[in-house]
Each structure stands twice: as C-alpha cells, then as structure tokens.
C-alpha cells in the first residue's frame, strides 16, 4: 500500500472555489510546503478553514483565498497577521468568524456526519450578528437550554503536516500537541498528509507511544514527503519556529517577499531560507 505522491499532484486536485482545511494552529506545524504549492498553482476563490497563521496570510496575500473561516489569524510571537489584517481593512477578503471552540465543534460535526452539534460558545456574542445564518436549538429535555446549533464544516480537501508517516498514510506527531489535524482529515473528502520523514510501518510503530499515532490510513489519501515542510512555523521536536524568518515575512513588502522566496519551486525556497 503506497500512497506517496508529489505535492504538485495533491494540489492539482484542488478546483477553484473549493473549501480547503489546513491543519496546525497559528504559526505551529502548518503544512507550509503545500501552502506554497497552492500559492504557485494560481487557484482562486478558495475558502480556507484554519486555526489561522501564515498559511492564511500567504494565500490571502497572493489572492488565492476568497473567504477565511476561523477563530483567529495569528503568528503567535507576532500577535497580528499583517496580510490578513490588510485584506480585512481593504475589504478584499470575506470572513466567517467563529469562536475557536465553535470551529472545533463544526469539524467534529462534519467528522461524525452530523448536520450540527450544540454548543454554548457564541451565545450573546456578535458571532451571532456577523453570521446571520447561525441558528440556536433548544434542549428537548426538561432543562430546555438554548444552545448554538454549530453547523458541520465540511471540507473538500484537507492538508495536515506531521513529524512522521508511513507510505500507507499512518502518521505520528512528536510534539506536545496534536492540534486538530485528525479532525481536519475526518471532515474532508480528500486528505493529504505531508511529513518530515517517511518511515517503514515498523519504524513508525516503534517511534513513540500509540497515543501519538494521530491518523491512520483510512483517514489519508496521499502522503507527501516535505522535509522542513512546516517552515517557518514550528514542528517540534524536529525544529522550532524560525522567528527571524517570520519577522522578515511580517515586515517585508509582499512583492519583495514573494520575489525573494516564492516565485521558484520548493527546492528554491529551501535553498533561499538556508542562506
């Protein structure tokens, strides 16, 4: 069973207008090599579902994304994402703004093939005002509690990045947090796992405790080998966030940054960031 393929082949499955889920969290373990390939693909009108970081910033800056579905967009050590910020104040990007827990619940609903899941988060807040399609639901039991009916967030394609995988699509994270990468896969029709290293199944199994095997091969359609593929976000323990590079990203005019790092292929990028 071999699902190893190229990043370009995986990205070629994206059609204009699709809803794309991107794993990780903020500026942590983002599938950035794939994001760079999406950027090069010239697709348009994508809806991005993400705990947003530079993945959102890059695709918004490049004009690839039309809508962002999120609870935040942040670079962690730099609290505000400059490209997302600019696009919002210029009105060039649509936003579906949820509480972070609502986003989790929407993915969980999709993963369980439910139309919605009830949640308290959102009640009384302006999340209800800026998402006029959101409905509430009442408990049918004597408590009669009113709750937000968080709709399922179904994805056309999901991309996640883990530390290790086998060729069949079993994958392991080695850092302290799985984030929600398993749910992104379960909520999507097509699922791609990029990783730092592809190993034999035996080596993958002996590489850590079973609890850190976050995805199994029923949840993954393609495995992509992308060493340093989360750069410049963190992918601990393989590497920390490249803070100096992130500062350059946040502080450099987009056309300059793009010409310096993104106009070539991934190999050119990796060469340029090593200098």
């Amino acid at each position: 069973m071999n699902k190893v393929g190229s990043v370009e082949d995986a990205v070629s499955e994206i059609r204009d207008g699709m809803t794309i889920g991107i794993g990780g969290w903020g500026s942590r373990r983002k599938p950035m090599a794939v994001v760079r390939a999406i950027l090069r693909s010239g697709r348009k009108d994508l809806t991005l579902v993400s705990y947003g970081g530079p993945d959102v910033g890059l695709l918004v800056a490049a004009g690839i994304a039309r809508r962002v579905v999120t609870g935040f967009v942040s670079l962690d050590s730099i609290p505000l994402e400059p490209h997302f910020r600019r696009a919002r104040s210029e009105g060039t990007i649509a936003l579906t703004e949820y509480d972070e827990g609502m986003l989790y619940w929407g993915l969980l609903a999709a993963a369980n093939r439910l139309p919605f899941l009830p949640i308290r988060a959102g009640l009384g807040s302006d999340v209800m005002r800026v998402n006029p399609a959101l409905r509430t639901v009442r408990s049918p039991y004597p408590d009669d509690t009113e709750l937000v009916a968080m709709p399922a967030i179904a994805l056309d394609v999901a991309f996640i990045h883990l530390n290790r995988a086998d060729p069949g699509g079993n994958g392991r994270y080695l850092g302290p947090d799985p984030y929600f990468d398993d749910l992104f896969c379960l909520a999507a029709k097509r699922r791609f796992l990029s990783c730092e290293q592809i190993e034999t199944t035996d080596d993958l199994m002996s590489g850590g405790p079973p609890q850190t095997l976050l995805v199994n091969r029923s949840m993954v359609d393609g495995v992509l080998h992308t060493p340093n593929g989360a750069h410049f976000t963190s992918c601990v323990p393989d590497y920390e966030r490249d803070e100096a590079f992130q500062r350059e990203y946040a502080g450099t005019d987009w056309d300059t940054f793009r010409a310096r790092y993104l106009d070539g292929g991934e190999a050119d990028y990796q060469l340029a960031v090593k200098r």
Partner: peptide
C-alpha cells in the same frame, strides 16, 4: 478583541474573537 470599526470593513483588524465567546458563557 476582534476588530475596531465596522466588522464588515474594519479600521483595524485585530485577533478575531478567539475563545472569548465560549469563555464568557462557560
């Protein structure tokens, strides 16, 4: 903590709502 100005086209986009709605009702 979301944005300053009208939400549709804010003068200053900040963090978005993050976990604030869920925190404050729970």
């Amino acid at each position: 903590i979301s944005c300053v100005g009208p939400w549709e086209k804010p003068r200053s986009q900040l963090l978005c709502v993050r976990g604030a709605p869920g925190n404050t009702v729970n």
